[in-house]
């Protein structure tokens, strides 16, 4: 069963771009356009990785990350923050809020999917290890 990616992103084009690339690399993709929706979908679908846009309307990305981390049902899912990397401390902020890694926008279409696959490999939880 191929891995499931949850993308929490409010910009339609960005979502389309990321989804297209990932699906063409064999991943399943679901999306939410708000923090609330994202958390609900995470709880319901238990994705293998969450791509989280930091600049979300209403609840900002950092808060979403924190909520995910504090929810026992979904706290172990790896989070990759997608940021514009504009200001000082953006990266630290994201990591402090609970993200495992980050990617800068605009993304590189040639390497994006590979990066995500790598993160899936690095951060996967033990009970998914096929060797066991």
């Amino acid at each position: 069963m191929s891995k499931l990616v949850l993308i929490i992103e409010d910009n339609r084009e960005n979502y389309y771009l990321m989804r297209y690339l990932l699906e063409h690399h064999g991943l399943r993709v679901i999306g939410a356009d708000s923090g609330w929706m994202g958390i609900e979908m995470a709880i319901y679908n238990k994705p293998d990785i969450i791509l989280l846009d930091i600049q979300l309307p209403e609840m900002d990305g950092y808060s979403v990350a924190r909520r995910i981390r504090s929810n026992p049902e979904i706290k172990d899912i790896p989070i990759v923050a997608v940021t514009s990397y504009a200001m000082m401390g953006d990266k630290e902020h994201a990591l402090a809020a609970g993200a495992n890694a980050y990617i800068e926008k605009p993304i590189n279409p040639d390497s994006f999917a590979d990066e995500i696959l790598e993160y899936l490999e690095d951060f996967r939880s033990d009970d998914e290890d096929p060797v066991r």
Binding site: E13, N14, L17, A86, I107
Partner: peptide, 16 residues
């Protein structure tokens, strides 16, 4: 930063 990069994301991305 955010505003400028967002459209570029699409341009660069889809061109790629």
């Amino acid at each position: 930063s955010h505003e400028l990069r967002t459209p570029l994301n699409s341009i660069i991305g889809f061109t790629g």
